[in-house]
Design a protein around this nucleic acid. Sequence first.
DNA 1: ATTATCTATAGATCTATAGATAATGC
DNA 2: ATTATCTATAGATCTATAGATAATGC
Lengths: 210, 210
Amino acid sequence: MIDNSVNNNQTTEELILKAAEQEFMTKGFAGARTTSIAEAAGVTHAMFHYYFRTKEKLFDRIIAEKIKMLINGLLTSVTDRDMSLNELIKNIIDRHLNFLSANPDLPNFVTREIYGNPDKVKILLDKLIVNAPVFLNIFQEKIDRLAAEGVCRRVDARMLMLDIASLNVLPFLAKPIVNGALNNCMANMEEFIQIRKKENYDTIMRKLKP
Amino acid sequence: MIDNSVNNNQTTEELILKAAEQEFMTKGFAGARTTSIAEAAGVTHAMFHYYFRTKEKLFDRIIAEKIKMLINGLLTSVTDRDMSLNELIKNIIDRHLNFLSANPDLPNFVTREIYGNPDKVKILLDKLIVNAPVFLNIFQEKIDRLAAEGVCRRVDARMLMLDIASLNVLPFLAKPIVNGALNNCMANMEEFIQIRKKENYDTIMRKLKP
DNA sequence: ATTATCTATAGATCTATAGATAATGC
DNA sequence: ATTATCTATAGATCTATAGATAATGC
């Protein structure tokens, strides 16, 4: 038995799961090969089917898990009524970028699969359609209230959320392009995240300024 | 001979090329099937190989064409020295969104292939590394000059370009998600583009305000 | 004579399973 | 007795080509 992977006390099931996650995340469902997954896990190919039966079953399990993470990440609403405008915006941006930082491949994985396999992410869309309006209404009310107090401009919460999401997510979705065009600026990822946190907060606050 | 496609005076080669473009753009290289392409083109599968020899050759041809388009779209620099700040920003945003509007699947296609197949888009990255700094330096000089005149703040041209690109591109990359979360706002695409043109111009101008 | 098209099939690759064997927990 | 693992191979799918036939342009 050749121990070519560092399978320090991980079970075969875990090894396959981990290898499959890596393979599916980087290559997508169509590009992933069950043989490659087994090889990367350091186990016989038959083991793949022994533990997870089919490629599709394992993919469904992984994408369901990822979508759950994504929804939790997106819909962790900031509903504290006593929070100031500055705190609110800072909180939303920081949370979002922290989440992206912890799951850098997630946006790419989801957007990729959405095109080739629309029904796989139907669960995601359904959840969004139900939950997003709830959060956006609370957010809009908050903005309107603060606008009435003269603290900020009265802007559309939907467009504001799209702005925030766009500014935060795009570097992750197009990392090689952004990094290539902007002088290797994403080489140190943590530093880049810190810069973008400040930059995006500033951009949004200026947009909200009365 | 069953004429199941509307091949009004298009040659077989053109029909295959068109079908292949559609297949590759939506499913990526790994997800695309040469049999499906031939079927969609309404020709025998052997014709695919007669005209284009291999799947990879045709893919390379299509991706090269798309990357050329993308580079032209990105690097159509606005270098008119006499342009005011307002005009400059408006021009960049309008051009970019017009380009995206004409090529809505392009960002997804490129970002998808970048992960599974880094060397396929190496040409794109090489071009960007060479050309982007040239444009960004001119842009930075322009900002610095206008800042010295007191017309705008002195901001980093790289971050500003990233902001603009993010705000413009993201809805195209994550269309189903944005559309699902934001109340079907992208149903009428032309209307949505017009709204984002104004919105993004406003966002960026506020960021630049002294 | 060259170009275009078709049928049939080879060849490669990938998913999945059958069936034998070893390890493990009562 | 059940669970885990292996070898070997079936079965499906997909890319690619061979070789025959029809259409086209001199």
